[in-house]
Design a protein around this nucleic acid. Structure first.
Lengths: 343, 343
DNA sequence: TTGCTTTACGAAAACGTGGTAGTGTTGAAA
DNA sequence: TTTCAACACTACCACGTTTTCGTAAAGCAA
């Protein structure tokens, strides 16, 4: 019912000036002890807290960071948010989250909405559509305005900024290599459409592993899924032909679908078909059999991204105007989590 | 590099007053066409956008809403956020998210951080610890300051505010009834500790369904899990004793663990044991067998909560001071999604 | 008394915006 | 010529803070 109390109100009530109140609360020695204590007591009684908006306006710092991600109901992305939130909290920052829904327009809209003073910097992962279009003007724009941006996971070389990624290529390589090591010869790749940056990189790693081991790289064994619902059919066809004895899937949804399809056809995992998935999410941990995955450690990515962003923000404070543009790309380590879907 | 342009800079550049610029941009008829167009062209060229912070300060409206939830890496909560985000976006609001980590202190801290002007209202779900302590002073405080609060899912009767919940008791009743209908007689309940409000309600529904059907309510068949890791042991003991032929689990994590444990012991789901879980999440959809669940529709809850909050916020705008305190509690419908874990 | 320092506080600007009220010029009607 | 409206624009205030600068009063030495 009663609005928050302001400096002005305190000043009026105690019949002193606003500046006196402000200084008293900051324990300035300029103010006599009697007045100081009186003001402090009064402020405490009325539970005075400075208004964040006014502070932001004054300091040109909002102490909040914007996150723009394609989805939020998504294990990986939510772990990243979690990681960001932890660090942000630690440094006294709030996080504002916008979901692009994998739409270019929403991504642009969201960025514009936040770019006008609401936040001190961005952490983002590109939407599919943005990667497809290759249009990054909205991002360069905010960067040109002097707002720091950190990209993670789905990044692009066309933008110069700090980045946090995993080495998708070598992680895929490692996964495929482990399938080869366990004696698999015909390894299928189930992936997304090409324009998603990480999909492309993982395909590269898959190919390299095959070639390095003297195995043929067969385009027919690469299954590109646009829509999860249709993948079952494609997969069952290939399974019928017994075309492969192992699968490397770029995400766990594909992996679990493969396993289920295989089971329906009477094929056993891992005996008949070994499965490895990218993204160590909740499905892999609880599916039957549990799925061997490449851990992506979203939390670590979030931690790192937040740290990088906040450091940039607070660095700019000091040597103002002096943009040092030696951007870094942090590579987060991955490792294979062996579970029941491989032997 | 170049900071965002302000009204003042435009005014200076074009040698007119700030108000002239402001009015030109808002297409006021007060300003002559020539000047107006000149200003608009200039503003467009320099991509002028009003500063959100300044607007917030002036309008005493931030156009953002704060969300405080116990966890974010959690299917249900992330769907709720998704639902909130959709509606918020539609109305031009941003969402600021804080995670309480089920800690009372963090919840208080986060609320205090946001309450000082950063947001126009709260949407929250209580942390476990807060429910345990029963201390809600931080919430009453912001409500007393005139800030609207909407609680969802984990709510309390001790706070008067708008709420969005599901009818946990009758949903549980329905689930247990369906188990009874399919001929099950010894139905176990796997639940959390009591102080979590929803856990209690679901237990009530479970009990009522049993009694209404003339089945005994046996405390031994209620398994309270504090930590997921320990539940496997408890469950396997009961399974050994063949103490039950069906399980109602208050979340899908418990359900999938039960299924896995049963499988290990050579018991078949649903033949030997039928399983129903609360919370229709991703695990239920992809586990083997897929799990029959009570859909909780987090998205709908989020939609509704956001709508209620925004309506309150914008209502206060009009009849200022005139708090109408007829708070409502919206009950979101649930329904049973039958899958393979029941027959 | 004069001149100087110290103490204790206040006034005002700044951050960026938007609305209300006001000002001065022009042209036309009386 | 006077009066008044229309026009085109400016001044100023408010939002809540912090901070710089200013200054009145008091104390003290000469």
């Amino acid at each position: 019912m009663k609005r928050k109390i302001t400096l002005k109100q305190i000043a009026k009530e105690l019949d002193v000036s606003i500046s006196t109140v402000s200084k008293s609360l900051r324990n300035s020695l300029e103010i006599g002890e009697e007045t100081r204590l009186k003001v402090q007591a009064f402020a405490k009684f009325y539970n005075y807290k400075p208004n964040n908006i006014a502070l932001s306006l004054k300091n040109r710092k909002t102490k909040s960071i914007g996150i723009i991600i394609p989805e939020i109901v998504h294990y990986f992305f939510s772990t990243v948010i979690n990681g960001i939130e932890q660090v942000a909290n630690e440094y006294g920052y709030s996080v504002v989250i916008c979901v692009s829904d994998d739409s270019f327009d929403k991504e642009v809209l969201n960025m514009e909405m936040l770019a006008n003073g609401s936040i001190d910097g961005f952490i983002m992962s590109l939407s599919k559509e943005t990667q497809y279009k290759g249009d990054f003007h909205h991002i360069t724009e905010v960067i040109n305005q002097g707002m720091p941006v950190v990209m993670f996971d789905r990044v692009t070389n066309d933008i110069l900024c700090d980045k946090v990624i995993i080495d998708d290529k070598s992680a895929a390589y490692e996964a495929v290599q482990s399938l080869i090591d366990s004696g698999r010869k015909k390894i299928a790749l189930v992936t997304t459409v090409d324009y998603v940056s990480v999909g492309k990189l993982r395909t590269d790693g898959y190919e390299k592993a095959l070639l390095d081991n003297g195995l043929p790289f067969n385009e027919d064994l690469i299954i590109k899924i646009e829509d999860v619902d249709t993948c079952e059919i494609t997969i069952s066809e290939l399974l019928h032909a017994r075309a492969f004895d192992a699968v490397f899937a770029v995400n766990e949804l594909f992996a679990v679908t493969i396993i289920k399809t295989a089971n329906k056809m009477g094929l056993k995992v891992p005996e008949d078909i070994a499965v490895i998935a990218f993204t160590d999410g909740i499905i892999s941990k609880y599916s039957t059999p549990t799925i061997t995955t490449v851990s992506q450690s979203g939390e670590k990515m979030g931690n790192k991204a937040a740290k990088m962003l906040i450091e940039r923000i607070e660095a700019e404070e000091d040597d103002d105007e002096e943009h040092n543009e030696n951007y870094i790309t942090e590579v987060i380590e991955t490792h294979l989590i062996k579970r029941e879907s491989t032997d």
